[in-house]
Structure formats: C-alpha cells, structure tokens
Design a protein around this nucleic acid. Structure first.
Lengths: 155, 155
DNA sequence: TATTGTTATACTCTATAACTATA
DNA sequence: TATAGTTATAGAGTATAACAATA
C-alpha cells in the first residue's frame, strides 16, 4: 500500500511503512504492551492504583508476611523504590509493615482488611483490561499467547 | 512448590507465588517485554543507539523524505520529543532535515549515507537480540507469537 | 563484614504548555 | 484560525551511592 512511495512523504494522511520493525518480535511485543498498559492504567485509575502498586498488592496477597527483600525480588523492583511504594500504600491503609522479632532488620508485609478488599476489586478491573486487550483472540489463542510469552521470560 | 506457604515468608531463598499475576496476559507481556528490551538495549549499546533512535532510523529508512508529523505518528512519540531525538541524530550525522519548499512549515527527514550504514548494522544487532529472546521458540512458534500480538495492537 | 531497609539523588521517558513561523 | 515544529519544563519510572540498624 505504501510501497514505492515517491521520495516525497508529504501526505500526512499516508501511513508510514513499518514493515522492517514489524518483522522484529521485540517491536510487536512493545506495541502490544503499550496497548494493554493503556487499558490497564485506565481501569486501575478507578482504584487510584499504579501498575507497580497493583503488583505489590497481588504478591503480598498471595504471600502474606513476605519480607521486603523477597518482595523486591519478585517484582524486579529496586529496594529503594519498593520502600517509597510501600510508604504510599501504607499511608493509604492498604498494607502494614511489621518488624520481625527474630531478625530485627527484616520487615514483614501484609494486606490490611481494606487492602484485601481493594485488591479484590482491582483484580477484577485487571481482568477487564485483559479481556479488552484480547477481544480479538479466542480462548485457545489467549492460552497459547501466555505459553509463548513465558518461554521468553522463564529461564 | 511455594503453595501453602506458612504465613511467615521469611526464607529469602524461597520464591514468591506469582500465580495471580501470571494469569493476566498483561503481566506476561510486560515480563517478556522487559527481557527482550534488556537484550535489545545490550545490542544497541554497541552502536550507541537507544530504542527510540533505532525506530526513527528504521521508519526513515523505509520512508525517505517523511515529514516529522508523520514520523511522530508512526512512532507514537510526542512531537517535542521527536525534535530532541532528531537533534541528536542530526548532530551525529545520521539523519538530515530539509525544509520543504512547498510548505515552509514542514521538514523532510532522510538518512545520510552514514545513517544508512549504521542502520544496516543496527538492524542485524536487533535481529540478534530477537533471536536470543526467542531461543526457546520454534520458527512456527515465533511466527504465531507475532500473529497473536498483532491481534492486540492492530485495530 | 554482610544484609535489610532507608534517604537522597540522578537519569531517562514521557507529557504538556507556550512559543515561532508559516499557512 | 489552524498546523509544523521548537523550547522549556514537569512528572513518572528506574537506578545508584551512602547511610543506619542489625546480624
């Protein structure tokens, strides 16, 4: 369609040829990531949660009493950034930090009752964003997509 | 393996349960994106190119004389950010901006000879990063992955 | 000495407002 | 009035160094 463009590319209504980039898996992943990220953010905004905050709630929900080190590892977040993340979530009454009695350097993190409630609603919202992003894929295709993606990030 | 953890999550060698997040396509895409992005950056570093700069070179290579407006649209980059991107690439002698004679507001962008040469090498490097990220996928799986991803970002 | 968590800081990306020059 | 491109700036996200408390 935009093959053999004359060397002038004036027409703004003309779409640029992206075939070289579309051959790269990395570019396709990035483009899909941007779409689903936007849908996700739109849903999470309703709960005043950012991506990283939702991930914190999710890991803590599935691993009550996890310490900050393990939490930072699971999230691939640097410890200083986790500290400020938790500051905000704690100030909102969604998580609680408790100093370990066995090793006083360690802090255990838990969801508060309010945190559990918000996470439950946020998880539904995340599912909604997912469903929107995947609306053109069959159930089998959705499973296959996840399977293929995991082959990239699981060692 | 980490199912039914006791409510203490002390052991730092223990991996946190991420099953709730792994059910979400968005999380799988993000994790895969982070992996391929790291490999890509590592390859591009050899050519002193950032992701956005590589994309600029690629679009301009396939659309010589494209104007900045169309280029910004294709890249999903805000015009102010494209301006500084092009400043750097132009200062390095990789692209050239030429004011249109028909509409003096418009600038056409082209690769210089040096830009073509660098892009050619960078494209190979991008392929290398791609191959590393996809090393556990068969050729058929790689094609299917791209097909599935495009169903997400093509409207 | 090494580790957990914190503070402070810096760098990159991205987004917006305000400007210019042209149309 | 609207558009192409620019400058300046502000906000996220991310990364590192230096520190305090504890082991």
């Amino acid at each position: 369609m935009s093959l053999m463009l004359p060397s002038s590319g004036d027409d703004a209504s003309e779409q640029a040829d992206q075939s070289a980039l579309l051959d790269l898996a990395g570019y396709n992943i990035r483009r899909a990531y941007l779409v689903i990220q936007a849908l996700f953010d739109q849903e999470m905004e309703k709960h005043d949660l950012r991506q990283a905050e939702f991930s914190v709630l999710s890991i803590v929900r599935g691993n009550p009493g996890i310490n900050q080190r393990a939490l930072a590892d699971a999230l691939a977040v640097a410890p200083p950034n986790l500290a400020t993340l938790l500051d905000r979530l704690e100030a909102r009454g969604l998580v609680a930090r408790q100093r370990s009695t066995e090793d006083k350097r360690v802090q255990h993190v838990e969801l508060t009752t309010q945190g559990v409630r918000l996470y439950s609603r946020a998880l539904k919202a995340a599912g909604t964003a997912d469903a929107q992003a995947l609306q053109h894929l069959s159930e089998a295709e959705r499973e296959q997509l996840k399977t293929l993606l995991r082959k990239i990030f699981v060692e």
